[in-house]
Simulated assay, not measured.
Amino acid sequence: MIDISKIKEKEIMEGFKGRFIHTEYSTLAFWEIKKGSILPLHSHIHEQTTQVLEGKLELTVGEETNVYEKGFVAVIPPNIPHSGIALTNCRVLDTFSPVREDYKKFGRE
C-alpha cells in the first residue's frame, strides 16, 4: 500500500508540484498546479492520460483545445504535441506508459 501524502513533493517546473509512483510499466504523477501555470508545448514517447481531480485545466492536444474539470480525462497519444494552462488551482493525476525514466529521479519507485 502506498500513502501518496508520504511521498515527497517536488516542483518540476514553476507552478507544478508533483509526487511520483513508478511501476514496472507505468508512472503515476499526482500534481498540484498553481493557477496561471503554463505547461509548455512538448511531446514524448509515452501514452499519457490526464485526469483532473479538482479545478479547471485547459489542454491543447494536437490541434484540439478543451477545458477539463473534475471527472474529465484527456488521452494523449505518444509523440503528439500538447500544452496547457491551469485556469484555477488544480489537482491532476497523469499516467504515463511506458515508465517515465526521466521522472524516476523525482520520486518513489
Rank of each mutant, 00 (worst) to 15 (best):
P77H: 09
G71K: 07
S43I: 08
F30T: 02
F72H: 14
L87R: 07
P40A: 13
Q48Y: 12
N79F: 14
S43P: 09
E14S: 13
D3T: 14
I4F: 11
F96S: 01
K6C: 13
I21E: 09
I12W: 03
V73N: 07
D102M: 01
T65H: 15
F16L: 10
E63Y: 11
I7A: 00
V75Q: 06
R91W: 14
S37P: 04
S97Y: 10
R19L: 04
T27P: 00
T88N: 06
V99L: 01
A86Y: 00
I76W: 04
K105V: 13
E32A: 08
G71D: 03
Y25P: 08
T50Y: 02
K105L: 11
V73E: 09
G71M: 12
S43Y: 13
K56F: 11
I38F: 08
G107A: 15
K35G: 07
Y103Q: 06
R19A: 11
R100C: 01
G55Y: 05
E58Y: 06
V92A: 04
A86K: 06
K70L: 05
E47Q: 15
K34E: 04
R19V: 05
D3K: 10
K17R: 13
E11Q: 10
V73I: 12
C90T: 10
F16H: 06
P77N: 09
G84D: 04
V75I: 09
T95S: 09
E54R: 12
L39V: 06
I21N: 01
A86C: 01
G55K: 02
I45H: 11
E24P: 11
E101P: 02
V73A: 13
E101W: 07
Q48D: 08
G15F: 02
A74V: 01
K6Y: 14
P81E: 02
G18K: 10
V75A: 06
N79P: 06
G107W: 04
I45D: 12
R19H: 14
L87H: 07
F72L: 14
K10C: 00
S43T: 15
S37C: 00
M1G: 15
Y103L: 13
S26V: 08
L28S: 05
S97E: 13
P77C: 08
R100T: 05
R108D: 15
R91C: 08
T23V: 11
L87A: 07
S37Y: 07
I2N: 10
V75W: 10
F72W: 10
F20V: 11
H22E: 10
R19F: 02
A74G: 01
G62E: 04
G18W: 12
F72I: 15
D94H: 12
S83Q: 11
